[in-house]
Simulated assay, not measured.
Amino acid sequence: MARRFRGEGTHKVDAKGRVSIPASFRRVLEAGDPNWREGDAPELVIVYGDHRRKFLECYTIEAINEVDDKIDALPRGSNERKMLERLFHGHSHPTIVDDTGRIVLPAKLRKKIELEGEAFFMASGDTFQIWKPETFDTVELARTEAWLDGLPEGTDPLIFLDGVKGD
């Protein structure tokens, strides 16, 4: 199975912060958790980051391990390493998907992105994001549209992949 999240969806958030993860996302979380076995709850890490971030970024265990390996490769004591450790280790929340396909978003995380009755899920390759639907529409969707509108007429965004080398 590919390790990429694809698609989007909106799901209800209950008063306790429980929200269903899209089913296709759960399959990727299972595949990206080296300790997961049939019947187990897949693990993930929610990175909420700094004050500028208006969304929660959810990583599979394999994806966050890749980030951790890159952080560990930085010189010990460097400012870059300290800041990235703070953003990805300190400002994160490890959790599991329960047997009904839900996660619990703590009040602190819901408050940070002003999440109330619904959560918008957006795939982002090897991560997925959780947004307040209105924030996604006004911030991120507007950003994407502005980028597309700035391209010359008739430009196919796939052109940016020309010349990109694979791993």
Rank of each mutant, 00 (worst) to 15 (best):
R4T: 15
G7D: 04
T10I: 10
K12F: 06
D14S: 06
A15E: 15
G17T: 02
I21C: 02
I21E: 03
A23K: 09
A23S: 12
R26G: 01
R27S: 12
G32M: 05
G32H: 02
D33K: 09
P34K: 03
W36E: 07
W36V: 12
R37G: 02
R37M: 06
A41P: 11
P42E: 03
L44R: 02
V45I: 09
Y48S: 01
Y48G: 01
Y48D: 05
G49V: 02
H51R: 15
R53T: 13
L56C: 06
E62K: 14
I64K: 06
N65W: 07
D68W: 05
K70N: 09
I71R: 01
D72A: 11
L74V: 05
P75A: 00
R76P: 14
R81L: 00
R81H: 00
E85P: 06
E85W: 05
R86E: 11
L87S: 03
F88M: 08
H89F: 08
H91D: 09
S92C: 04
H93N: 05
P94M: 01
P94Q: 04
P94H: 07
T95M: 10
D98L: 04
D98V: 07
R102H: 07
R102K: 03
L105D: 04
P106E: 04
L109T: 01
K111W: 09
K111P: 01
K112L: 09
I113V: 07
I113E: 04
L115I: 02
E116Q: 13
E116M: 14
E118Y: 11
A119H: 06
A119K: 01
F120E: 05
F120C: 07
F121S: 00
M122P: 09
F128K: 11
E134P: 10
F136Y: 10
F136G: 03
F136N: 00
D137W: 08
D137E: 15
V139T: 14
E140R: 15
L141C: 13
L141N: 15
A142D: 10
R143N: 15
E145A: 15
W147T: 10
D149E: 14
D149A: 15
D149F: 11
G150Y: 00
T155G: 00
D156P: 01
P157G: 06
L158I: 14
I159R: 15
F160I: 12
F160A: 13
L161E: 13
D162G: 15
G163F: 08
K165C: 06
K165L: 08
G166N: 12
